[in-house]
Design a protein around this nucleic acid. Structure first.
Lengths: 195, 195
DNA sequence: TCAAAGTTCAACCCTATAGTCAAAATTTAT
DNA sequence: ATAAATTTTGACTATAGGGTTGAACTTTGA
């Protein structure tokens, strides 16, 4: 990649992050392309030199967010921890990423229906991959007798639901750090699985 | 209320429910007033005889949804059950209402930021009232030694998050009935509180 | 029967905003 | 220095969709 291409890519990334911020604050529709541009001292016209459409921006947010989450999982996958510990790590890392990349993740959690079909397919595939990894941990735990028999899919929905909802109420000014919250959630949500 | 006023009120309720359906399917912005009208074989012009604005429609959805949830709670409040049983009832009834009034509840769970300030205040007050009731149950449980010491607010967020997320994945074609799901969630989410 | 009140409708207005474009400004390479 | 390539700009287009209006139609009640 040439110097110019690199710079264009870097700028596009900044634009995507600015978009994530506004999408997450005001929702996809209420955030205007002009506002996103203004955030970075561009004019609307020049931002279209880097992006192809507003929808493209939304897709990039979703994609970036899912890639971050999937990267986390790769690390945990090879940790060799037992299923209960591993599941707790997944919950903690999910929550910590949710907060440290708050805007990006909030967008991906809150605006699937805004994504056009062809983009949605790609994101849903990544989400499935993410959930499959968690399902494998739980099944492994059941097989080893560490976890009791449970409807796996539903437990994932329950755990992910509780965790994702943090994006709705979390404030850095709250009484607990995000590490403490992550730990509490991990313990609380894994405990009922133990046999 | 006169016959005509009653009929107008009934029609408005139907319009609100049609709006809820479309808001929940496509989001507030992507659902147009014309579509909402068409759903009930009105024209856009005539629907404005019954409503004052699209925003009014959104507020009515929120308000109706919160009233339903608050009614549930009134019943449980006077049941005389011990805190653990009572909390489970709250979770079950929350989930069952979420599904039986899917459109209304999904709207209220998914589009707070679309509500204008003055409307939002009213809805947030009702939500606070709802959460306060749950907080009281948990505090009572702790006082009686049935529950261990926990950060009450966070446990509520966790439980409500998991439950509300059901709106994201529930399908009546799934392998479990909503009663079974409600029971599973209630057991799973209350268990870690027990001392 | 007929006038007043209530209801419906199509056509219209108006604003917001996604996206375009041609010319101007800037950067780079020779 | 200068020409070519890249980047920026602001004015412009197009359109969707919320909300209005006044005339037509329907219902009610005296």
């Amino acid at each position: 990649m040439s110097f110019r291409e690199e710079r264009a890519a870097e700028r596009k990334l900044n634009i995507v992050k600015a978009a994530a911020k506004l999408f997450s604050e005001k929702g996809y529709h209420d955030a205007t392309v002009e506002e996103i541009a203004r955030e970075l001292k561009y004019t609307k016209g020049s931002i279209y030199y880097y992006i192809s459409s507003k929808q493209d921006l939304l897709f990039q947010c979703h994609d970036l967010a899912m890639n971050l989450l999937l990267e986390n999982i790769e690390k945990i996958k090879n940790s060799g921890l037992p299923p209960d510990r591993m599941l707790k790590e997944v919950v903690k890392s999910h929550i910590e990423t949710l907060v440290s990349e708050f805007n990006l993740i909030t967008v991906t959690l809150g605006s699937d229906y805004e994504l056009e079909e062809k983009y949605a397919e790609i994101i849903i595939a990544k989400r499935d991959q993410y959930e499959k990894f968690i399902a494998d941990i739980i099944r492994e735990g059941i097989k080893k007798g560490i976890f009791r028999e449970v409807p796996v899919k539903m437990v994932i929905n329950l755990i992910m639901g509780a965790s994702n909802w943090i994006g709705r109420w979390f404030s850095p000014d709250g009484p607990m750090t995000i590490q403490e919250i992550g730990q509490f959630y991990a313990d609380y949500l894994v405990m009922p699985l133990l046999s």
